[in-house]
Design a protein around this nucleic acid. Structure first.
Length: 401
RNA sequence: GUGAUCAUAGCUUAAUGGUAAAGCUCCGCUCUGUGGAAGCGGCGAUACGGGUUCAAUUCCCGUUGGUCACC
């Protein structure tokens, strides 16, 4: 059971200010949704995640089904109790793993295709078999065969007990031709109806729009799903070869979706994407960037990203969020100084990492392979992303965006 | 002291009488519904002094240093 209220609609863009009410608290939208694939934000406890201003997390059906299995979690009456997370939760359906553990692994590609890359597409990836019934996986853990279709996915997600669950979709690799994409889309729509039909819980169910880079298919998909009784919508799949085409594709889709229902963008959220996708009308979005990059030593600041492992930071007594020695993301004009930091964020980061620890110390910890480095960077990055979105909400309220 | 043996990149090891190779480290880069993963690129070496040879890191002699054995 969720309730979504739109508090304000921007005059300047498609951005909306809203509140998503769940049985586990309210989420002010637009909101960032950190990714807790295995029921944890890697390196942090649930208590620590609460301190990052996070109000909602997304976990993964496929991963939790394989380990520890939904029966264990159901024994705790769901994920909230199991992971001691009192706030809202989403679970991703597992459909994306058709891509990321199949085509993605076969071809070594991501869903935003780089320009000039040529990929030879196969009809079926090596590690799984897709039929109208569902997907036969090979577990990435032990190679065992696992079958998940729409019925299975919903059943697992009901056991997991998140507030918001997603329909099982097929996420085809980038650059597939129109014919395959159309066929795949029909399958995703078939599965969407099955998900609606088999769901017995009162969890909110979001349908997922696919259609790849084809406008007619994106539109068709949005129209189809809009005609069904979903509580909200996810936008998935490939997003073209550059940032502009990504925003265009999101635009085609959102235009067709019912305005009163929440829209979640799946898996997108580089810092320089955030303002754009919110202006396009996205209410929530998840992304691994702040947490995954933290574990590679990358910290986000108002002025750009830094790689804390670099030797120049060994002698840097500033906090992470300092203007000095920022070398990453210079290609992105939004990071340049004349804008006084990200989208007008002019206050120094107030997270406890920035208040208490120097870049020098963090650099030492990271180079020494100490796990505390990963933990502190993860905390900072989540705080940074949440603060950024908080600032954007404020700007919508003040009619700046 | 005598004998043996070794000396190649910051580290650990290849190879060859004819362009000195790799792993780790180090320096860059990639990463969007998550492997603390992976990949790409870069810097960087024949201990020192002679000799033989068209050509020596390689063969010979010496020096220095390390290791082992013996007195």
């Amino acid at each position: 059971m969720i309730e979504f209220k739109i508090l304000k609609k921007s005059e300047k863009s498609q951005a909306r200010l809203g509140v998503l009410k769940t049985c586990h608290g309210e989420v002010e939208t637009p909101a960032f949704v950190p990714v807790a694939t295995q029921g944890v934000i890697k390196t942090l406890t649930s208590e620590e995640v609460l301190e990052t201003k996070t109000k909602i997390l997304i976990c993964n059906t496929y991963h939790l089904h394989l380990r520890p299995g939904e029966k264990i979690i159901k024994g705790f009456k769901g994920l909230h109790k199991f992971m001691n997370w009192p706030k809202a939760l989403m679970t991703d359906s597992g459909g994306f793993q058709v891509f990321s553990l199949g085509f993605g692994r076969d071809l070594g590609i991501s869903k935003i295709l780089k320009k000039n890359s040529e990929i030879e597409l196969k009809t079926q990836p090596n590690f799984l078999k897709i039929t109208n019934e569902g997907v036969l996986f090979r577990s990435h853990l032990d190679g065992n065969k696992v079958f998940i279709g729409p019925k299975e996915s919903i059943k697992i997600q009901e056991s997991l007990g998140a507030d918001i669950i997603f329909a099982f979709d097929e996420c085809p690799p980038p650059a597939v031709d129109f014919k395959y994409m159309k066929k795949s889309l029909e399958r995703t729509h078939l599965w969407a109806d099955i998900c609606l039909k088999v769901k017995q819980s009162d969890q909110a169910l979001f349908g997922i729009v696919q259609g790849g880079r084809f406008k007619s298919l994106r539109t068709e998909s949005a129209d189809f799903l809009s005609s069904r009784d979903f509580d909200g919508f996810g936008i998935g799949g490939e997003f073209g070869s550059d940032k502009k085409s990504m925003i265009d594709m999101i635009g085609w889709t959102l235009e067709k979706l019912p305005k009163i229902k929440p829209r979640h963008l799946l898996g997108i959220g580089q810092p320089d994407d955030i303002l754009k996708i919110i202006k396009a009308g996205v209410d929530t979005f998840d992304c691994i960037i702040p947490t995954h990059y933290a574990r590679r030593g990358i910290a986000f600041t108002r002025f750009g990203s830094i790689n804390i492992g670099k030797s120049i930071y060994l002698n840097d007594k500033n906090s992470l969020d300092s203007e000095k020695n920022v070398v990453g993301f210079v290609k992105n004009p939004l990071y340049q100084r004349k804008n006084s930091g990200y989208f007008g964020v002019n206050k120094k980061c107030s997270c406890f990492v920035c208040q208490n620890y120097s870049r020098s110390y963090l650099c030492h910890l990271f180079r020494a392979g100490e796990i505390t480095a990963l933990k502190l960077l993860t905390f900072h990055n989540l705080w940074f992303f949440n603060s950024l979105v908080e600032k954007i909400r404020d700007d919508i309220k003040k009619e700046k965006i």
